[in-house]
Design a protein around this nucleic acid. Sequence first.
RNA 1: GGGCGAUUAGCUCAGCUGGCUAGAGCACUUCGUUUACACCGAAGGGGUCAUAGGUUCGAAUCCUAUAUCGCCCACCA
Length: 760
Amino acid sequence: MKKEISKAFESVSKEKEIYGMWEESGLSNPDTMESYLREKDIAVKKPFTIPLPPPNANANLHIGHMCGYSFQDAMGRFNRMTGHPTLLLPGKDHAGIQTETSFTKILKERGIDKWSMSREEFYKQCYEFSMKNAQNAREQEKNIGLSADYSREFFTLDPRLTKIVYETFYKMFKDGLIYRDKRIINWCPNCKTALADIDTEHEARRGIFAYIVYPFIDESDRARAKEKFGIEGITVATTRPETMLGDSAVAVNPMDDRYKEFVGKKVLLPISNREIPVIADEEIDMELGTGALKVTPAHSPIDFEMGQRHSLEIINVIDEDAKMSGNVPERFLGMGTVECSKSLVKELNALGLLTKIENITHEIAVCERCNTPIEPIISNQWFVNVKPLAEEALKALEKGDTKVIPSGQQRALEHFLKNIQPWCISRQLWWGQRIPVWYSGGKKLHDWLRENRGKDISEYTKETGLEVNGTGEIYIGENMPSDTSVTWEAEQDMFDTWFSSGQWPYSTLGGIEGEDFKKFYPAQVMETARDILFFWVARMMMLGIYVTGKTPFSTVFLHGLILAEDGSKMSKSKGNGVEPSDVINKYGADSLRLWYFSDALPGSNAPVREEKIKGNRNFVNKIWNASRFILMNIDETELDMVSKYEVDSNLPRVIKTKDHIEKVSKYLENYKFNLGAEAIREFFWHQLCDIWIEEIKGEIKDEAIGSEIRIAKLAELLLILKENLKIMHPFIPFITESVWQELVALKLAEGILMSKQISK
RNA sequence: GGGCGAUUAGCUCAGCUGGCUAGAGCACUUCGUUUACACCGAAGGGGUCAUAGGUUCGAAUCCUAUAUCGCCCACCA
């Protein structure tokens, strides 16, 4: 008796069963796949590699992650089915600041203050937290059908990866690309760490624009100013009055006729009552504000640059908690910046030095992770001079060694690389990889000597009152140097996450000496979301070329952005996210995948439409039923004959099928997933089901069971079905494999569809 | 301020290097219980391809403006 096949495809139970079978087969491992090919005497082509973007191990995966996996898996499966031992290398990212922020929040909810914990304890708990999330993520990946090689999975804090990340750091240091510098950086007062420029975002916030008079010192200047401006000073306009406490100059454009005569004169900085000069700088925009800028080198990037040019004094007045500190009048010490701004406005008004105050909306920099306004402060940090690396990456793009889909994003990437600034790679975090540096005699000594060129240790001791045992030099290495005659202090700063994930394509292959590296590097494809093009793709290219001499991937495929149903961005705060497991449980993974392929195209936005996913579910069900019908039509006594029957390859329907397979293969080779998805649907449904099955139905209607013509027609139908299953498998692996296994059960096919070769 | 992109049926979008009556899915209308499937079948309605110019034998497709929208970058005067 042939077993009954259910009327509807029961995706939930089937998918689990099928995935289990794939796992057991080990075919996701390229080595296993290669031996399989050899065993079957199939030509082994060159390996196909995609380093899968490691999701952050601090939350569950969202519908956007699943989108990436769908594309990656489709590419992987197609290549695996065309003779390429395929490596989809999975992993999870420790995601430095992001995980530290979210885990700190979780601790807070539990009533635990991060700062009351030891670093070690925090790290340990954060690690457990990440491992738990990694496990969840892994299950979700499997739910969408990802045929990744989990025997090669990595977590970014794996010691094997850290070793490679360190080696890169040493190499860069030796090449003079890494340096420690004291300069203005983006400081997040909430995360209490430095941030790279790219880690900040710009948001429109309400603020004030205050016009403040800085009176001239000199009697004659005052008189002239009075005559010219109606007041005895120069008026500056600022959105941040509190920074005036750290002003070291007022700058005007040298071409500005209003102020020309005052350049070089001195004004009195109100409240602080310090004398500061009026300087001329070409960067000043005469149109903005009053055309006179108060210069605060310690707390504004543009002012910092200006300060460097004019050797202005740097006066720190805001500390790392975004509180007023340092050389400010006593009454402001410890005040928050906003509060201080308010009191200053009041005081200035009382002094008659505030001529105008406007309410404005302006763009300010905020921390990408916690939305806290960035405080630009002067700080000692580690930097990478990425300019030379960016140039190499640019060359790779220009030569076409790496191309980006969509091409518009390639131009954006080029633009980014051309305008790249030094990369601040140190983070004052507890979670991540420690920067492998040791300071002889302490970090403070080292920084002091660097800031006070020409001075020596005795002067340091005199100035700070600190006795030191060391030279102030640094040692680059993971472990403390063996020279115990000096006191070594370990660098406590962590690497920017992207410094390690930027090495993902080769670190996961064992580095340049690794066996896997020789076989699988460079990868063919990097498939990811476009929002990490600069963060990640750019860094991978720069670091990859620097370390290995080769661009890490030849194609960058950026899938579209998944949006909420109404076209808005999905976000936790809005609560409009779509839970992938809900969709998969309701409609099956194949249906969701098919939706991605047709809608989440490179460069496009894709609002989630349940109706469309439902439509795909209908298609999946159609495949199930058509297959079921074919199988039901083959009588038990005919199974053997049908399976052994040699179908004439010149039959029109067989030829047309072959053409179709070629067409879809082309689409896949050219990353035209939408066209591929459309083609398989169109062909299976409207050609095979609507026309051919109906035709054959008629052709065999009156034929006796076991007759030559029945066997021929059924064998033809079966062949067409099998070829269709193969070409559809990269898109919708579960349904196709399920049907294949039904065929296997009836001895009409053998093995696992995943490993079958698409006949082109 | 700079960069990138979009504007095609009610909705979401295809339409590669210019060439048949402009396509798909979903939605919509009418009909249909033929032994795979109603998660189905048959038939059908619906678009001056944002606007204005230009190149061309021929443009949704190339060029130039304009308008609207979106995203990214940018030193918060």
